[in-house]
Amino acid sequence: MAVVSNTRGLTLRDSLSVSITVGAYGAAFGAASVAAGFSVLQSCLLSLLTFSGASQFAVIGVIGAGGSALSGITTASLLGFRNGLYGLRMAPLLKIRGVKRIIGAHVTIDESTGVALSQESRGIDAMRQGFWYTGFGVFIFWNLFTLAGAFGAQAMGDPASWGLDAAVPAAFLGLVWPRLKTSVDRALAISAVAMALVLTPFLPAGLPIIATTLLALGMGLRKK
């Protein structure tokens, strides 16, 4: 029994530290979202209902830069595709149905999946706990910080005056940085930047970003 509760404590600690750290990024999202022209309510709804950081930043980024709603939604959805694959990985582990599956699906994100997988050595119960603790933990802090960030930005006024217009690309850079593990990844990232910039004068805002998916497809589908 002592061993069980000890494991639970360790899993809870892992989940909480991830939840608070990641949740704090929500402030950057809330501020960026308001700076992009979304209302406080719309910003909070994105965090409550979309609940996937990269997708949220993408939709406010594209629409804020003058892209169409469709471009914004498409970019966000391409980024949200990976959550589906996380769900695929988590489903046999969680074995949930009905309302519980709806809730579980909603909190299936990078962090809940990551913490669940990191608990593998502690057993399947710890993996499940890691998933739920982190999913709920990030959800709570992400939404609270979004609200704070959105109100903060609303009080500030001109976004450029406070550097918010640079905070958004910096946030994207911070999100992509841990994913650049090999020199091939880095070359791909630089190619994507170049491609999007070269296409910018010729396509409506938003499309140059979506077009870079071709680079990923070209490379990913060539793999044996």
Binding site: A54, F57, A58, G61, V62, A65, T75, L78, L79, F81, R82, D165, V168, P169, F172, L173, L175, V176, R179, L180, D185, L188, A189, I190, S191, A192, V193, A194, M195, A196, L197, T200, P208, I209, I210, T212, T213, L215, A216, G220
Partner: peptide, 13 residues
């Protein structure tokens, strides 16, 4: 996919 989209967003933004 996240690598290219997030990188493109860095450049465009």
């Amino acid at each position: 996919i996240p690598i290219v989209l997030l990188s493109a967003l860095v450049g465009v933004q």
